[in-house]
Design a protein around this nucleic acid. Structure first.
Length: 474
RNA sequence: GCCCUCGUAGCCAAGCUGGUCAAGGCAGCGGACUUUUAAUCCGAAGAUCGUGGGUUCGAGUCCCACCGGGGGCACCA
């Protein structure tokens, strides 16, 4: 609108119909057919075709992305001159009868309209949208309109999280919120962010995982508990990493890691079915069959498949070191056989897995919170799921013995002293909590962002995070 | 942190080996048009070519640094 009168939008608008509902209800209208059904819809004018005495506009509804054509006739629409002066991107409310034009486009023959907001900035090229990635991430509010396909993935995120909550609540899981500000950031191997509380005059860490607080709650009687929340890791940024990301963690008393495997595959298959109507997806031009059950194989079995060598955490360390060196692993002196085997797995095996597959029985040395395997020494009842070539989750039969947990933490401290700056921190209060008794428990963590990438077919985490972390704008 | 790569008007985007090089389209502005679908047509306007240095008679084009984006490595979920 280019007008000298100051723009003064109404304070509210009675929207009578959703665009999608109108399109569905009047789908049967024949070309040129009119109705006496009057509706008021709202959205942004995305296209405008001015013919002189009549005009057509494409109105897009924000929350659905649905579009409907507005048909304006100068002899019908009071304010026609103002209508054709609308700028692309302006928000309006439009009232009129539902009709289908001679050329077959379901439309609203506008009898009145009210400008709701002016777009003083445009939404980019009306055909190409905005392709500059910097602009798309920094000005997501514009990207969402300029690139409808971007909005689809971002809306799918909300729907997915909603589906997860419903699914878990149907299984009696209780959602909780645990501290983001912590004195000891533990529960994962990662570098935390540090901040400061002025009144207490103490430095605090932003959490790197909710794990230890959720297990405190199991001790406190929450037999099925979960949290979907933001965690923060002070690490690099990539297509798979944002410094703040969303984690689902859940804990189920009286369950073990086999129960967690069943839960993960059921949940992911359910989400795929709800979102796509099938468990067969395409990701990165490759087929992905999420139907259950997923394959299960231990880490050492998979390494053997890949390099033909059967490793065991109990064998002499020199032999394992030799295999590691042979496959290009840069071995560090402090590593035991468990760490070596994990490194060999990551170097030789993991990248060849497409999945879905559960990689089970991680070495004890690299799994400080997992319970020892019930009949295999040196490894734990832990698994990660590899889906579409990426790690989707991490889960285990929880370690329940406070003395063993203390010893594992102390081992982590030794690893930290030996130079591993991401070794897990010892949490004294968590050990005290464990002394009250943690029942046998299955625990699971899923990176929600990566899960949504999988379900939306996107290959960059920035496509599923509304406002990804970027360097400050100049 | 390292390596590669990109950065031209609000948006999309030509510009090869340095010499009318600052095309074109969309949006915005002015005008025409009674069934358009990225409507079309006419007109005027809009760019210190990311920033700062350097090489050269001459740089958007070459070199260096910095800023920002993307990809990869490292690290992790």
């Amino acid at each position: 609108m280019s007008d000298d009168t100051p723009f003064d939008p109404p304070y509210r608008l009675d929207v009578t119909d959703r665009v999608g509902a109108v399109l569905a209800e009047f789908d049967h209208l024949a070309d040129g057919e009119e109705t006496d059904r009057t509706v008021t819809v709202a959205g942004r004018v995305m296209l405008l075709r001015d013919q002189g005495r009549l005009a057509f506009a494409t109105l897009r509804e924000g929350s659905t992305g649905d579009e409907i054509q507005l048909f304006a006739l100068s002899k019908v629409l009071d304010g026609f001159d103002r209508f054709v002066k609308l700028n692309l991107g302006d928000w309006i409310g439009a009232t009129g009868e539902v009709v289908r034009t001679k050329r077959g486009e379901l439309s609203i023959k506008v009898t009145s309209f009210v400008p709701l907001a002016q777009a003083r900035r445009g939404f980019g090229d009306k055909f190409h949208g905005i392709t500059d990635t910097d602009l798309r991430y920094r000005q997501r509010y514009a990207d969402l309109w300029a690139n409808p396909e971007a909005a689809v993935a971002l809306r799918a995120r909300s729907r997915t999280i909603s589906l997860i909550r419903r699914w878990l609540e149907d299984r009696d899981f209780v959602e909780v919120e645990t501290p983001v500000l912590q004195h000891v950031a533990s529960g994962a191997a990662a570098t935390p962010f540090t901040t400061h509380h002025n009144a207490l005059d103490v430095d605090l860490k932003l959490r790197i995982a909710p794990e230890l607080f959720l297990k405190r709650l199991v001790i406190g009687g929450f037999e099925r508990v979960y949290e979907i929340g933001r965690v923060f890791r002070n690490e690099g940024i990539s297509t798979r990493h944002n410094p703040e990301f969303t984690m689902l963690e859940l804990y189920q008393a009286y369950a073990d890691y086999t129960d967690m495997m069943a839960l993960v595959e059921d949940l992911v298959a359910h989400l795929a079915t709800e979102l796509h109507g099938t468990t067969t997806l395409t990701y990165d031009d490759r087929e992905l069959d999420l139907s259950t059950p997923w394959r299960r194989a231990s880490m050492v079995e998979l390494i053997e498949d890949a390099i033909g060598v059967r490793l065991d955490v109990g064998q002499p360390i020199d032999e394992v070191r030799a295999v590691a060196t042979e496959h290009g692993v840069e071995v560090e002196e402090s590593w035991g056989t468990g760490k070596l085997i994990l490194e060999i797995y990551e170097k030789t095996t993991e990248h060849g897995l497409w999945g879905p597959i559960f990689v089970t029985d991680y070495p004890e040395e690299v799994s400080p919170l997992s319970r020892a395997h019930r009949d295999q020494p040196g490894v734990t009842e832990r698994f990660e799921a590899i889906v579409a070539g990426r790690e989707l989750c991490n889960a285990f039969s929880e370690l329940v013995d406070p003395d063993v947990q203390r010893a594992r933490f102390e081992d982590q401290v030794r690893q930290k002293d030996a130079g591993d700056h991401e070794a897990m921190a010892l949490d004294e209060d968590y050990l005290r909590a464990m002394e009250y008794g943690l029942p046998p428990t299955g625990g699971l963590g899923i990176g929600i962002d990566r899960l949504i990438m999988l379900l939306t077919g996107t290959t960059s985490i920035r496509d599923v995070v509304l406002f990804p972390t970027l360097k400050p704008e100049q």
